[in-house]
Design a protein around this nucleic acid. Structure first.
Lengths: 157, 157
DNA sequence: TCGTTATTTAGATTTATTCTAAATATAGAT
DNA sequence: ATCTATATTTAGAATAAATCTAAATAACGA
């Protein structure tokens, strides 16, 4: 009866997806942990408690949840795809040192900024992906400044 | 002697990466084709002409080029990672119907928009990922409006 | 309850990526 | 030019990730 379970049930209702026990477990895990887990990690996690879900089911559900917009695949560095509950909009920050993917609070992109350049495409959603050094890595080691040829300046924002 | 070759050589110079024939071929392919190819596609493409590069070399070079900032992995739907030459900054548009990833001309994110929310992290780069229906799919079929629970409005920009 | 359709399952299969250790090429110093 | 230290390349084996299969089960509406 926690607030989360209500929210998850409503989410399933909204997108008209059958809330099977396995599918629910996948979404719940992602909603509870902002760690951006791989399919394998989700598989292991949901199988610690009942109900047990097979690997194929985890993959199936990640796809159906993604198609419904409740989950999204976040671009990560490394082979296995990482997933993220998408109940509330947010941006992402990827640490180039340690590879961690952090959530960044949502803010709207000013309309003026994007308009012209999208040329009539129908945008249903968007996110900003920041890259750099996270707070942890800044403390620990020396940050390597990004060095793309056409990035002359130091700080980018 | 084309303009591209000069640009590629300069790019290697800037980032202090050895411009081996194989590495050059990988970057050149990505720069010439904005198709956001997979490692396998690049492998096949660069081996149509000399020099031939092994699969492992393609992967090695994608990693070194990525670390140098000349290439980036673009988030795609599907298992194989897709890569993109990053000589000039640009944003991305992913079509939710057909899966195509398109480049969007660069524009700066207004400073005011992002500042507070990044909380001291050192941002060396960023990009915006738009999702929706591309022009081709808009013409062909019916566009499905995005339906996340907290997205009440129709158009997003 | 019944019938229809979606979902789940375990395991095999396919596909993607990394690893290995020896051979080669590169850049800089002599 | 030659030498040396280091980075890169290679083919193929090994690992890891994701998908497929066909039969069994669960969900939903009538």
């Amino acid at each position: 009866m926690s607030k989360l379970s209500t929210e998850l049930e409503q989410a399933f209702e909204t997108v008209a997806l059958r809330p099977t026990a396995q599918r629910y477990a996948v979404l719940e895990f992602l909603a509870r942990h902002s760690v951006h887990a791989t399919a394998e990690e989700i598989f292991l996690a949901v199988n610690r408690k009942d109900p047990r879900a097979s690997r194929a089911t985890v993959y199936n559900n990640l796809r159906s949840l993604e198609k419904a917009g409740l989950v999204r695949e976040v671009s990560s560095q490394g082979k296995a795809a990482r997933y993220d509950a998408n109940l509330h909009r947010h941006h992402h920050f990827i640490c180039e040192q340690c590879g961690k993917v952090e959530d960044i609070s949502w803010f709207d992109l000013p309309v003026s900024a994007a308009g012209a350049v999208l040329a009539g495409r129908d945008v249903s959603n968007y996110e900003i992906v920041f890259r750099g050094a996270c707070l942890g890595c800044l403390k620990t080691g020396a940050a390597t400044a990004g060095s793309r040829p056409d990035n002359k300046s130091g700080g980018l924002l």
